[in-house]
Design a binder for these strands. Sequence first.
DNA 1: TTATAAATGATATGTTGTATCATTAGTATG
DNA 2: CATACTAATGATACAACATATCATTTATAA
Lengths: 149, 149
Amino acid sequence: MNNVESIIHHAERHCRDHGARLTVKRKQILTGLIESNKALSAYELMDFCKQRYGTNMPAMSVYRILEFLEGQHLVHKLDLANKYVACIHISCDHSHAVPQFLICKNCSKVKEISITQSTISELSATVKNAGFDLYSPQVELNCLCESCA
Amino acid sequence: MNNVESIIHHAERHCRDHGARLTVKRKQILTGLIESNKALSAYELMDFCKQRYGTNMPAMSVYRILEFLEGQHLVHKLDLANKYVACIHISCDHSHAVPQFLICKNCSKVKEISITQSTISELSATVKNAGFDLYSPQVELNCLCESCA
DNA sequence: TTATAAATGATATGTTGTATCATTAGTATG
DNA sequence: CATACTAATGATACAACATATCATTTATAA
């Protein structure tokens, strides 16, 4: 069993444990994200499924599946890029911290880092101080990766 | 001269000083952003100009104008929301720091805060440590404003 | 095995953004 | 002032991202 399969296996168990089903289509989308090792758009995932599995998925289905995978914390949506990326913690059993993303604006390669709780508290306090409520502490930063720099 | 006019006046001088022209159309777009007091999409700005001035601007022009205004540091693009917001520092003469944005995900109201240089350095170091280069230190946070919370 | 809920398909359309080429408005120079 | 040049805007088409809605298929449970 290679690494991708192993991650998918973990994802399957995670879903089963949470009363959810990792269907064939959902597995295909997730596989696309894991294998590519970078952020992909819904339409790029559509193309991936088409080429790799011959699956002809309507955009609607892809978005629904991505939403499901997000709900299971298997995938993150990156608003900075309008793309989606597999969570690096799928194979970890512990519940993971709030993610911080370094996104290569050139090639969509992504590094997922965890923010410390103290940083989040600090952030949250700053926001509160400004009269706002922090809705999601997810931080996305516009970067260049090593190869693109 | 009311507040909006005063800001526009500052913007005009800023452009003149930098060898750029704040044309009628550009002024209309900037006025829309200043008056609305929140983030607007290019298409919302198109509608604003239509209703307010009877100006029929093609989308292309709006995007070009927004790009110009960004270049003059009069407007910021918020990637989190795919919207644009007037810089709060237009009337300040000092060059301003890197902005951090608190964006109400419900009503697009925006609070622009400045990040301290030390926070940026910290951020930059973290990123460097992960093998990436920070391209833009602009931070955008998904929030809820007071009225929407 | 049949009722029910969950998942997916199909179609249309809305929203955001860009490519390209044409035209108009400003500016500078003889 | 006329002419040439550059900056700004218009017009058209289309690409990419996303959702609304209703129909159909697939799983699950009674």
